[in-house]
Write a protein that binds this DNA or RNA. Structure first.
Lengths: 242, 242
DNA sequence: CATCGTTGTTGATCTGAATCAAAGCGGCTT
DNA sequence: AAGCCGCTTTGATTCAGATCAACAACGATG
């Protein structure tokens, strides 16, 4: 499960602010969290936890990006979600995970011991309320992605992906906004249900059309945001419902 | 959002037992639910609520099947979930819905007025805990479906769909177990990200191979469960993690 | 700075599913 | 019973994206 935190300055020494856990926590609850908390880091490409493994701790991503994926017996793999800083791994009341979690970049996790954390969820009502909201946000995102996987063309998929990168990027410091692809072409393919060759070809096509421009392999600039959005196949309002 | 209830005999006059709401409710809480509850029916094919519409009530399906879907501007549609009896429509703290909800068969809903229901969620901790669990179950199901949409072949998709029908069907009374497709070929296609012709062709092929047998258009018998499972492309354990 | 491994690009070809098209059912109405 | 309508099947053809293959660009390493 993936949980989004906000920017409330709490939760002791954590470099990020745990909205889910802390937004409405009192000092006593914060102290409890502080007691059961520890950090762990993973190198890019390393598995964090495998499908079916026992979950000894709940974790939130502090730095880096992890992927949630499933690989079929013959090697076909589908990425079902990206875990960005402040997203959450684990689920109260279940002691194993259902998907592989892999560090895409170097990743630092803030982990909470399972049993004490579960007790806290049980005892403190606003935590489960917040976790319900976050799970529902994730559920919505997953369903939007189902539309992409089931019905969009390669071009639409990639345009949607690029737009997502732009939307989820932290606001950059430069005036010319350069964004970074956090994934290889192969990983993007596994996320969009395409092959790496198709990703490469479609990106080249958009480059030729003047929609995007690359600086190296990973960094890109949006030259024509309107054309990019048009290519997504989404409604004009960009998915926001009035 | 979709929520699964259990078979606890509670919640007053409701023909089904609302696990989420009632499993741990005391008499006072049940009385409150009873006060804000009413029924509504929809004919097969009718829209129940459109994407973006204001949500005046939370509903659980009592009888029938509804679909959750998104239609793109050019008519491509993707079904992102099926709502079976005891599934739930609506989400606390949000006054609109993100997908179209349509009655697939005749549908009876048990509805709860929005504001009082939200208050109940806020006041009674075990309700949000249970709703969190249900949301996470749905999230898992959605992610499994993402693997299907992104990486499975037409044959694998249909085998997985048939297996799902079998798994989710209420145990039949006959010794020869006949199952019923709740959807037309077109609806199955929209659920699996395929066209109705592909559905028809693949079903014919499985019929020819002796895996299934049809009685009319909608009713079928599994003649070779092992072959069906093999065709899903899933692990041998059927997705259950030990 | 030469080498090697990884990642990315581009071309040629193949193929699974979509699309286009035409019948074949049932079930319903009149 | 005839006719109609929505659903389904089946065939012919097309096409988007996969697959196979070669090479280019880059970064790390000695």
């Amino acid at each position: 499960m993936t949980i989004v935190f906000n920017d409330r300055e709490k939760c002791g020494s954590c470099p990020i602010r745990h909205r889910a856990i802390c937004a409405r926590c009192d000092d006593d609850e914060l102290a409890q969290l502080e007691n059961i908390k520890f950090y762990k880091t993973f190198e890019a490409g390393q598995p964090i936890i495998w499908r079916g493994d026992e979950l000894t701790a709940f974790s939130s991503v502090v730095i880096g990006i992890a992927s949630l994926s499933r690989t079929m017996e013959d090697g076909r793999t589908q990425v079902v979600g990206l875990l960005l800083p402040s997203d959450f791994i684990g689920r109260p009341g279940r002691e194993y995970v259902d998907f592989d979690v892999t560090a895409v970049t170097d990743v630092t996790l803030c982990q909470f011991q399972r049993k004490p954390f579960e007790n806290l969820v049980e005892d403190v009502p606003h935590i489960s309320q917040r976790m319900m909201e976050m799970a529902l946000d994730e559920l919505n995102a997953a369903r939007e992605w189902m539309v992409l996987l089931g019905r969009k063309t390669a071009r639409e998929k990639i345009a949607t992906f690029l737009e997502m990168i732009v939307r989820r990027s932290t606001v950059p410091s430069h005036s010319v906004t350069t964004y970074t692809l956090p994934l290889t072409r192969e990983e993007i393919g596994d996320f969009l249900g395409l092959t790496l060759e198709t990703i490469s070809r479609q990106l080249s096509k958009m480059k030729r059309e003047g929609i995007i421009e690359f600086e190296g392999r990973r960094n890109f600039v949006i030259k024509d945001l309107a054309a990019l959005h048009l290519a997504t196949g989404d409604d004009a309002d960009g998915g926001v419902i009035v």
